Amino acid sequence: YKIYPYDSLIVTNSISVKLPKDVDRTRLERHLSPEEFQEVFGMSIEEFDRLALWKRNDLKKKALLF
Rank of each mutant, 00 (worst) to 15 (best):
P20S: 04
T12R: 10
D58C: 12
M43I: 07
L51R: 03
L19C: 06
R56S: 04
E47P: 03
L19K: 04
D7Q: 15
K60T: 02
L65T: 00
Q38H: 13
F48H: 01
V17Y: 04
A63E: 03
V23L: 06
N57R: 09
T26F: 12
L64C: 14
S16G: 13
Q38W: 14
Y6N: 01
L32C: 01
R25L: 13
L65F: 02
D58M: 12
P34G: 09
S16I: 10
S33D: 07
L51A: 04
F41D: 00
V23C: 04
V40F: 04
E39Q: 14
N57L: 10
K62H: 09
T12S: 13
D58A: 12
S8N: 09
W54M: 08
I45F: 11
M43A: 02
I10C: 08
F41S: 00
L64E: 07
K2H: 09
A63M: 07
Q38I: 10
H31N: 03
S14T: 12
L9P: 01
K18Y: 08
K62C: 09
F41I: 04
I3A: 05
F48V: 01
D24C: 11
W54L: 08
G42C: 11
L53D: 10
E39D: 11
K2Q: 11
K55V: 13
L9G: 01
L64M: 12
T26R: 09
S16L: 13
G42Y: 07
P5F: 03
L64P: 01
V17I: 12
F48T: 00
P20Q: 04
E36R: 03
D22K: 03
R50V: 12
Y6D: 01
R30K: 10
K55G: 04
V17Q: 15
K2E: 09
A52V: 09
L28E: 01
I15L: 14
L32W: 01
S14I: 12
R56D: 00
K62R: 11
W54I: 09
R27L: 08
E46A: 13
R50L: 14
G42Q: 13
L53K: 09
E36F: 03
D7H: 15
R30D: 02
L28N: 01
D58L: 11
A63Q: 04
P5W: 03
D24Q: 05
D7F: 12
K2W: 05
L51G: 02
A63Y: 08
R25H: 12
K2R: 08
E35P: 09
P20V: 03
F41C: 01
F48K: 00
Y1W: 11
